[in-house]
Amino acid sequence: MATHIPAGYKWWTGGKSPYNLSYGKLMMWIFLMSDTFTFAALLISYGTIRVSSNYWPDPNYVFNTFPFMGDANLPLAFVSLMTFILIMSSVTMVLAVHEGHKMNRRGVEKWLLWTILGGLMFLGCQAWEWTHLITHVHPVLIDGQIKEIGATISQNHFGAAVPGLMHEGHQVHLPGPVGFGNFFFGITGFHGFHVTTGVLLNVLMYFWVRNGRFDRLGHYEMVEKAGLYWHFVDLVWVFVFLCFYLI
């Protein structure tokens, strides 16, 4: 297998490699640890601001819509679907890596494509959710006047209901805590950015698999590294899901 190593070169001569890992995988693991701290910092900041606010919107109320279902009240249904898609894409990634171990190029191609598709679907869902939140306006009482606003990074309509005040058949609310939009769009956006990077990485892997780069190298370790990243992004979503939708 290692025929292209010139005679006399010893690349790793320190006995057994620590953790039996190549340096590339080690780097990926360390990077993920480091990125964990980025997300931890954001989520802990979110936690502190949220517990110090005296009002916070109920996720069952904020996230209760579903595409093409009109005003049907379906709390957390859509985000469950998103989460399911992302987790399935992790499963297909595992299969791609597995095929890589068997040096089966076709198999890797197939499962990578599914993973890319899963990632794109997740991003599509997120785009829909954001658009819905931003463009769907609700009546809000601001400075004694009723205004129709959507939920953006700087304002939202998820405050407490104003008892007895209706506007064109809709209950009027107070403005919600600014921090809600700040952190929701900030953190899900940052996570979405990670998913996007992951999809691009997978696309790159797909092309490298197709043109036989890894067959020439004799291993599919790069796909494994991309896989590590993908699972990490998935895992982070579980925490985001927990912090924004469940509690």
Partner: peptide, 24 residues
């Protein structure tokens, strides 16, 4: 590796406060 990412998070939020009208 473990502390600079936290600083980065802090800076991102600061940039948002400066330009996106947030109140972190």
């Amino acid at each position: 590796l473990l502390s600079f990412p936290v600083l980065l998070s802090g800076f991102i939020l600061l940039l948002f406060d400066r330009h996106l009208g947030t109140s972190f």
